[in-house]
């Protein structure tokens, strides 16, 4: 069902909680604001965040004649979303599945969702290099325009895991479009002193060492955290923020073929 998808972008990180879901949703929203047709597929089966972040909880997917019909954020159907969250009875339900069952669910997500024509399909992933990742790679190998954006935070504990993810991408042959460093520094709202709570610069130096394009640093910004749950784009709500500038820049590059 990916025949009508022009470009697939995986959002990956070896590390948990670095902002993969935040980046996936903001990237999808930014692309949508620019007029593209976008799909967002959440393959984090045990911890799906996308329905909550986009304020789509309680929505459900329907079975159409040709497959699952994604949930659309807008009436013009420019952003379609698929997540296991839409298939659970309650938001507290746990998906207690071992690898093989997760694998077959992800295959269904890749094969049975009716995306229509898409300019971009963004895939949000859980941390690690295991069933979800192996399955998605195996099934995307045939897709010609497919690449990964790696998300990291600046500290060593995160960089260490992201290095493993780079190895994974290289072994499975998926091109890495770039690295985004998230949560690099927090500016005190009272005194404007910037504290590098999780250190800083780690993403940039990882990009340099691994010869991967650096896509920018997103600071810790509680306003960005608060967009989660509302389905709002940083580029629209916080146009002056660094976050907005980073995503604008990434989308510019995607649009002009720079990435």
């Amino acid at each position: 069902m990916l025949d009508y998808v022009k470009r697939v972008i995986l959002v990956l990180s070896g590390k948990g909680g670095v902002g993969k879901s935040t980046v996936s949703t903001q990237l999808a929203l930014t692309l949508k604001e620019r007029g593209y047709k976008v799909g967002l597929l959440d393959i984090d089966l045990c911890g799906p965040s996308v329905p909550f972040i986009l304020n789509l909880e309680n929505q459900s997917v329907h079975q159409g004649p040709e497959g699952w019909i994604p949930v659309y954020l807008d009436n013009e159907q420019r952003l379609g979303v698929m997540s296991i969250g839409f298939l659970l009875g309650s938001r507290n339900d746990a998906v207690v599945w071992r690898g093989p069952k997760k694998t077959s669910m992800i295959k269904q997500f890749l094969e049975d969702v009716c995306w229509q024509e898409l300019d971009f399909l963004i895939i949000d992933t859980p941390p690690g290099t295991s069933d979800e990742h192996i399955t998605v790679m195996e099934n995307l190998r045939q897709v010609p325009q497919c690449g990964a954006i790696l998300v990291t935070t600046p500290q060593e504990v995160a960089i260490e895991d992201v290095r493993k993810e780079i190895t994974f991408c290289r072994k499975t042959g998926i091109p890495i479009l770039g690295i985004i460093e998230n949560m690099s520094g927090y500016e005190c709202p009272t005194c404007s002193e910037c504290t590098n709570i999780f250190s800083s610069g780690g993403g940039k130096s990882l990009a340099d060492i691994s010869k991967i394009p650096f896509m920018g640093s997103v600071p810790i910004d509680p306003r960005v955290g608060k967009l989660a749950g509302q389905g709002l784009a940083a580029v629209k709500e916080l146009p002056e923020s660094t976050t907005s500038k980073v995503f604008t820049n990434v989308v510019d590059q995607l649009a002009n073929g720079g990435l």
Binding site: G14, R98, T129, S130, R163, K164, F168, K171
Partner: peptide, 10 residues
């Protein structure tokens, strides 16, 4: 440290 453990569940 670059070694990735690319293993499925079992």
């Amino acid at each position: 440290p670059d070694d990735a453990v690319i293993w499925r569940g079992p």
